[in-house]
């Protein structure tokens, strides 16, 4: 009788465990995760606006700094590269430069600030539940507003000065979308890395510095081919690699549309789209895996 009871108890336990594991599986479908993020879209916006307000509220010039900074950067770089080191471009150098600088600044600043954002918001992360992806998303959104305002102000310049208007301009949202997805994904990856491994933020800083030179910002992509024979032979493969730099492709897309009125290279666009999507999926899956336990590592 007693044995029977024990057996029954065992069955109950096993049954319970099966039920529990099923429930756990159910509650964690990708769909639920995505829905969770979508439901909290207000939060992305609120956090971005908060960042924005906090950053510029106490500054006298306020959000003018947002525009002043890239302009100053452009002036310095223009001085250096059109008078001291001459890099031949077929359009006025400041316009050429700014067209690359705006997307680059958006990406690099988001990544630089964003890498440590999750750890910096640890008070929030440890005490309130929300999908953790929200934090890098909010950082991206905050910088995206900056970028968009700057871009809208900049756009008329090449259109009028270079008369580069064409129907291709309507393709512009595509590189913008790619840039945003790429930035969110890479920032998310960095935040995950940073929360488990605090050296990530320094690695990211160093990476951004190198990346700046490996991205055709102050030079056109074609400039690289003129280097053959100038640089040591072993450096050439690395320079060739720059062509596969997704930021290089995205910036070239911006230039094609804005400065030359051309449609972007189809092969390159497909390449960067696939690259960005893979990156997005990887970061999303990593968040799914590690997001729920991130609070324990803060």
């Amino acid at each position: 009788m007693k044995d029977q009871f024990i057996v029954k108890e065992h069955f109950d336990t096993i049954e319970k465990w099966i039920r529990i594991s099923e429930e756990m599986k159910k509650s964690e479908s990708i769909w639920t995760d995505l829905k969770g993020i979508f439901q909290k879209r207000d939060l992305v916006y609120s956090l971005a606006v908060k960042d924005f307000k906090v950053r510029y509220r106490n500054a006298t010039l306020g959000f003018l700094w947002m525009l002043l900074n890239p302009v100053l950067q452009m002036l310095v770089l223009s001085l250096v590269f059109s008078f001291i080191v001459r890099i031949p471009v077929d359009v006025p150098f400041p316009i050429f430069l700014l067209c690359g600088l705006l997307p680059w600044n958006f990406m690099s600043m988001t990544l630089g600030v964003g890498a440590s954002s999750l750890v910096n918001e640890r008070n929030l992360v440890k005490k309130v539940y929300f999908p953790r992806e929200i934090i890098p998303m909010a950082v991206t959104l905050g910088h995206f507003i900056n970028f968009l305002i700057a871009l809208i102000l900049f756009m008329p310049v090449p259109l009028f000065l270079l008369k580069s208007w064409s129907w291709n301009l309507f393709l512009l949202p595509y590189p913008i979308l790619l840039l945003v997805v790429f930035t969110v994904s890479i920032t998310s990856l960095a935040t995950i890395g940073d929360s488990f491994f605090r050296d990530t933020r320094f690695i990211v800083e160093a990476l951004i510095m190198i990346w700046f030179y490996a991205t055709p910002i102050f030079y056109p992509l074609s400039f690289l081919f003129t280097l053959e024979g100038v640089v040591p032979f072993w450096a050439m493969p690395f320079i060739q690699l720059i062509r596969f730099n997704p930021m290089a492709v995205i910036i070239t897309m911006f230039r094609d549309i804005l400065l030359y009125g051309q449609s972007p290279n189809l092969f390159e666009s497909v390449y960067v789209t696939v690259f960005t999507l893979i990156l997005a999926i990887v970061s999303f899956l990593l968040y799914r895996r590690y997001g729920p336990v991130i609070a324990d590592h803060m």
Binding site: K40, D42, L43, S46, L47, K50, L124, F130
Partner: peptide
């Protein structure tokens, strides 16, 4: 408003 957004 921020807190409201935070709790959904």
């Amino acid at each position: 408003y921020l807190y409201g957004a935070l709790v959904g």
